[in-house]
């Protein structure tokens, strides 16, 4: 399984593992949506610390989860993006819809 869900009172934490691409994203989407629909959380945390690769399927995954959680009045938090995942996410302006925590630091400057 490529996603580990751990829910507390009003938060759902989803830890993604491995590569996020068009092949793997649907299973991740289903697992997260199932937890969100069940818990209707105030905050959905998606943790990328164990993601080994991400293409634009990861953007689709995040955008889609934003729509789901936003419709329920919740907030989306994206954690621990690798430099590669962050570079892909930035193309889509994901920082406009989700709170990003622990983003990669560029050399010599704070983002």
């Amino acid at each position: 399984m490529a996603v580990f869900i751990n829910s507390r009172a009003d938060e759902v934490n989803a830890l993604l593992k491995g590569d996020i691409d068009h092949h793997n994203a649907p299973a991740m989407r289903e697992a997260i949506d199932e937890a969100v629909e069940l818990k209707r959380p105030k905050v959905l945390n998606i943790d990328f610390s164990e993601v080994t690769f991400m293409d634009s399927s990861g953007i689709g995954l995040v955008m889609g989860r934003y729509r789901t959680v936003n419709a329920l009045g919740g907030e989306l938090v994206i954690k621990n993006l690798s430099p590669q995942s962050y570079k892909v996410m930035r193309l889509a302006g994901v920082e406009k819809i989700a709170r990003l925590e622990k983003i990669p630091q560029e050399e010599g400057k704070t983002i």
């Binding site: 994203a25 634009s56 399927s57 953007i59 689709g60 889609g64 570079k87 193309l91 889509a92």
Partner: peptide, 15 residues
């Protein structure tokens, strides 16, 4: 539709 972001070519172009 669905979860396709429509950014495939944008990624190829930027990267």
């Amino acid at each position: 539709g669905g979860d396709r972001a429509g950014l495939g070519f944008s990624v190829m172009e930027s990267f």
